[in-house]
């Protein structure tokens, strides 16, 4: 751990459970001279029932952090805990089961299965596990995302916003311990983006769902409870109860620091 680490203050959530914990997480791509450090030793706690946004300029490592936490990518060092479960050292089968049962994921590009209807897509993680969805929960989720009348349509018959809502419903269907969303509004217009974010917000408020999103949009970040800022593979700052203005301000400062840093190096 030669890298300096910034840890977020623990006092604010002393009364809440930790849904996910990242300890000294490092991710290096490539080897030798070509090695690129994406994460230089990140430690963060994500609280249960909280809506967190991870922000940062391009290349700050925010997506890598999310992929490592969602068991989609392997860390080079450090550790990830989902609840009590330590990710390091798990084999493919265990990671698969973890993704299936404990994690929900929403992608920027929706990633629905084109041959399946909206309903089938929503039920997919459950049906892969060979389980039936709980009808009450299904109805609740479907009503929250407002897709009741689109359930039998296939993805190519849905708008981008609708597709992303299907993807959100899919992520929530198995009642995962944590939902990760990677730029969920990146491909959407502002109205559709607002729908999706509003839906995620409601899931946190009404169902105590833990959600972590990666975004570079201050407006999206304003929907969350807490914003964590990454730069150059390290946590550099955080903001609670963010507003779009406050986030924007923070980002400006951060990017100026980055520019200054680059200039200093030169």
């Amino acid at each position: 751990m030669s890298h300096p680490t910034v840890t977020t203050s623990p006092g604010a959530y002393a009364t809440k459970d930790v849904a996910a914990r990242v300890v000294g997480l490092r991710k290096v791509y490539g080897e030798g001279d070509a090695a690129v450090t994406a994460l230089g030793g990140v430690s963060i706690d994500f609280l249960a029932g909280e809506f967190t946004a991870v922000m940062g300029p391009s290349g700050s490592g925010k997506s890598t952090l999310m992929h490592c936490m969602a068991a989609l990518d392997e860390a080079s060092g450090g550790d990830v805990f989902l609840g009590e479960q330590q990710l390091a050292g798990l084999g493919d089968t265990q990671l698969t089961l973890l993704r299936r049962d404990k994690i929900g994921f929403v992608f920027q590009a929706y990633n629905l299965v084109p041959t399946l209807t909206a309903r089938e897509n929503i039920e997919l993680p459950l049906s892969i596990a060979g389980r039936k969805p709980d009808p009450g929960w299904f109805d609740q989720v479907v009503d929250t995302v407002g897709l009741r009348d689109r359930l039998e349509h296939r993805p190519n018959e849905l708008s981008g916003g609708q597709q992303q809502r299907v993807a959100c419903a899919r992520a929530l269907m198995s009642r995962p311990e944590i939902v990760f969303a990677d730029e969920p509004t990146g491909n959407l217009d502002s109205a559709s983006g607002a729908e999706v974010l509003g839906f995620l917000r409601r899931s946190v408020d009404e169902h105590k769902q833990t959600i972590v999103i990666v975004t570079h949009d201050p407006v999206a970040a304003a929907y969350t409870d807490r914003v964590v800022f990454l730069a150059d593979g390290l946590v550099v700052d955080e903001l609670r109860e963010p507003t779009a203005e406050a986030v924007l301000e923070k980002m400006k400062v951060l990017s100026q620091q980055a520019v200054a840093g680059t200039a200093a190096e030169a």
């Binding site: 089968t93 698969t96 993704r99 299936r100 994921f105 992608f107 299965v113 892969i128 899919r170």
Partner: peptide
């Protein structure tokens, strides 16, 4: 699609 299926828990 294969990636997605694996991501949502297909073994």
């Amino acid at each position: 699609e294969v990636g997605l299926l694996r991501a949502v828990g297909m073994s």
